[in-house]
Nucleic acid binder design. Structure first.
Lengths: 232, 232
DNA sequence: GCAAAAGTGTTGTAACTACACCCATGT
DNA sequence: ACATGGGTGTAGTTACAACACTTTTGC
């Protein structure tokens, strides 16, 4: 005797802003429960809607975002996670280049904003836990798949990549060795452009991720390894 | 306006039988849809039931199995995956030592049986896809976490471990190098016992997985790597 | 004594870590 | 000229891959 259950989706959207820090997209809830609290974007799955479609729809509605990279994270089924009763939520994690979008608050939300991962407000429901799981997954995955590039602009200086990895791996790395390793794979295309000078310092060369080259490598059985030891 | 949706769980239960092959537990369905077809064990989530609890309950009911190792795999939400209408399913994968259980067919099932992974019957719903995802996940995970031991008996000869990895990695491996690698970690405790002679050949020494030692290693920041190159 | 499975060491090579100084630009 | 961030090479060490013969048992 099947009993229908309320099903939602939630998205942990990561963005890496030019100021060089990892951010998460949060929306401020307009209604109860948790009215006024910050929460992950998400909402109920519609009848006959594919769950992945539901996430994309909610992201567009609530924040005006259409992600390139989106992947299922985990399904949270603790019967007490929502004060309204049993609500099971399928969580996704999403990587975007923030420069591609202007955030727009949707109808259900009073606001949509990027929050630095190191300084988050209290979150509604079990969203702090979901975010933690997402961050851990991202940190782990970035060492064996080149998904970090989904967070950077199309063209980026090497230092952005390095700083991103520093943040995700939670330790500093040796610049020379890291660069050598990535260059060896040949998955970075070096452009004949320099970044605009930002304040002072030498302008950096710009690179682009060579997706085609990466898939070649991958299909020929090559395993990427972007982990790097902590520098003392 | 939330609409309730039917929610099920499905389990991909892997077992490694003494005959030395990787098997999956399937049940033969007693009712429509797909009456008579083989399917993954599973069923509907009850009101206010935690989803993980639902899997354990179904496994016990349908096959008499109480697993040690159980982990969420992926949530399948294609609206056409069930002919009865929209049914979202949270899939788990489960590792058991088959020698610990006697299979018992439950009330909904006409039969419960181990099937060799290399020779499966046609499956109900999208269960073939689920099984494929589970197998891929298991194959990947076995290289960086020692979950393979959950499939072996408490005491096992080295050759069982080696054969298991051969099956999961889908290529043969160098026995000497593999053994060296695993022995280096010190996660195998060598017992002063020999396996009973099975037919002909030299009797093998028995080992036990040293869980405590593994957690020590892990907590001191050590990353296991049990991948091994294919032998030419 | 032969078939079948278990057990074991060495050597060359490739990959990694550690490490510090010069360069280009803005102010 | 100085502050800021960008860019680069080498040497010692370690870890891995490749490889084949001997041992113990049953029949």
């Amino acid at each position: 005797m099947p009993i229908p259950i309320l099903l939602t989706v939630d998205a942990v959207v990561f963005g890496y802003t030019p100021q060089r820090d990892l951010h998460v997209l949060l929306i401020q809830r307009g209604h109860d429960p948790f009215a006024g609290h910050w929460a992950l974007p998400g909402g109920f799955v519609l009848p006959n809607e594919h769950i992945e479609h539901a996430v994309r729809r909610e992201l567009k509605e609530e924040a005006g975002i259409e992600p390139d990279y989106l992947e299922q994270l985990y399904t949270f089924g603790n019967p007490n996670r929502d004060p309204r009763g049993q609500v099971v939520s399928v969580a996704y994690y999403v990587l975007v280049k923030p420069s591609k979008f202007t955030l727009t608050a949707g109808t259900d939300a009073t606001d949509a904003q990027w929050w630095p991962i190191a300084d988050l407000p209290p979150l509604a429901f079990d969203h702090a836990e979901i975010l933690q799981v997402a961050f851990n997954r991202l940190s782990a995955k970035v060492t064996y798949e080149p998904i970090g590039f989904e967070l950077l602009d199309e063209k980026f200086p090497f230092s952005h990549l390095e700083h991103l990895y520093t943040t995700l791996l939670r330790h500093s790395i040796d610049r020379r060795n890291f660069r050598k390793k990535i260059m060896q794979f040949g998955i970075l295309e070096s452009l004949n452009e320099k970044s605009a000078p930002s304040g002072s310092g030498r302008p950096a060369a710009l690179f682009r991720f060579n997706r085609a080259r990466y898939f070649e490598l991958k299909n020929s059985g090559f395993a990427l390894d972007l982990s790097t030891p902590a520098v003392k």
